[in-house]
Design a binder for these strands. Structure first.
Length: 213
DNA sequence: ATCCCGAGGG
DNA sequence: CCCTCTGGAT
């Protein structure tokens, strides 16, 4: 099957499995989503959700976080990993948002990626989920793995993979495509032991790079 | 290419 | 023990 046709068929089957896909991170404001998404680097959303209630209670917005004691923030987010760098990112992001954006999380790719710890993946999530803006396709470890296995890209470079997916998927689906691929990756096609026998993509998936034990 | 970093699973 | 988890900066 040709790549474009396969992409649309995969999208159709993903929609069938996940009629209302959404992130499993807990958040209520754009600032909380930005913080939670940055914290999710190399860490499961379950563990992010374990630290964010206290984090958001003690430092609920950019003004509070900009004034936070780094040692205290490090304690609260310790179990999420990369805690020193992530603490610097949180305080740095809050400070720039206060100084340059009047305390509001910016709504453009250019402005978001100025923030420390924020590149295209995190910015795409914030733009799509908090503001409903389809700027691109967020490419994380799940999207990267599945796009390669399913033959939607031949690249291992996240920027190139994003460009490929933007051509293959209709723009209105870009935000949902990320969520559906992440969920499908977790449920059916994890990195180590993909369950190809039980997979509804079995007949159209090239299974590129699938580890067979 | 390497580093940041803890926690859970196999 | 080794791999992986919704990455990003140097």
């Amino acid at each position: 099957m040709k790549r474009q046709a396969r992409a649309l068929e995969i999208l159709s089957r993903l929609k069938n499995r996940y009629p209302a896909p959404q992130s499993e991170l807990d958040w209520t404001t754009p600032w909380e989503l930005l913080a939670a998404t940055m914290l999710s680097a190399q860490c499961t959303d379950v563990r992010v959700n374990k630290v964010t209630p206290e984090l958001f209670r003690r430092w609920p917005d950019p003004p509070a976080m900009a004034q936070a004691d780094p040692a205290e923030v490090e304690k609260v987010i310790h179990s999420a990993g990369f805690f020193r760098q992530k603490t610097k990112n949180l305080i740095g992001e809050a400070t720039i948002i206060i100084n340059d954006y009047d305390g509001e999380v910016p709504r453009t790719m250019k402005d978001l990626t100025r923030l420390p710890g924020v590149a295209r993946k995190t910015a795409n999530i914030v733009l799509s989920n908090a503001f409903g803006i389809q700027e691109g396709v967020a490419v994380d470890t799940h999207v990267k793995r599945l796009a390669f296995r399913m033959g939607l890209t031949t690249s291992t470079d996240v920027k190139k993979i994003e460009q490929d997916l933007m051509k293959l998927f209709p723009k209105p689906d870009w935000g949902d495509a990320n969520h559906m691929l992440v969920l499908f990756g977790r449920h059916v096609c994890p990195a180590r032991t993909p369950r190809c026998n039980d997979c509804e993509m079995n007949d159209i998936c090239p299974k590129r790079g699938v580890k067979t034990k």
